[in-house]
């Protein structure tokens, strides 16, 4: 039997105060990705993926490099939000927190490598 009052046990278990933040970020990144994704798909469908020199020249244009950086960052954030929800829904117990941390790390690494690669090509003369 607990000596804590019912109020004492309930306090702190309610809203964290940021209930809509995740939902709203998912929506804003979705709108961004719809635009960036369509731009990228149309660009790639017209490109010769075997011609590295042409692709490097294409990324070398400031607008393309900027949109690619935004695509990588927006996709990484949207994906981080989404895969987190999937993990929280299906994975319980001891593996839950390590998996959530691993998902964050994987997305952080993907974002860093992706952005750096675009910058290397665009301004690093690769």
């Amino acid at each position: 039997m607990s000596l804590r009052t019912p109020l004492g046990r309930a306090l702190g278990l309610g809203s964290a105060g940021d209930g809509t933040a995740h939902w709203w970020q998912q929506r804003v990144t979705a709108v961004g990705l719809a635009l960036l994704g369509l731009w990228f798909a149309v660009s790639m469908l017209g490109a010769d993926l075997g011609d590295r020199a042409a692709l490097v020249a294409w990324i070398g244009q400031p607008l393309n490099a900027s949109l690619l950086v935004l695509l990588v960052l927006t996709a990484a954030w949207h994906s981080q939000l989404g895969t987190r929800v999937i993990a929280e829904d299906y994975v319980h117990g001891a593996m839950k927190v390590p998996l959530l941390i691993a998902l964050q790390f994987i997305h952080a690494i993907a974002a860093a490598v992706g952005v750096l690669a675009v910058l290397q090509i665009a301004i690093g003369g690769r």
Binding site: V72, S79, T83
Partner: peptide, 29 residues
């Protein structure tokens, strides 16, 4: 939800492709 999870893997492939492009001719091949 399933296609979203697939696209999360697709993000990793996109990054792999960009990194290979940046790494040079031999790495891209």
């Amino acid at each position: 939800r399933f296609t979203g999870a697939v696209l999360a893997v697709g993000l990793l492939l996109l990054v792999y492709w960009l990194a290979a492009l940046a790494a040079g001719e031999a790495a891209y091949a």
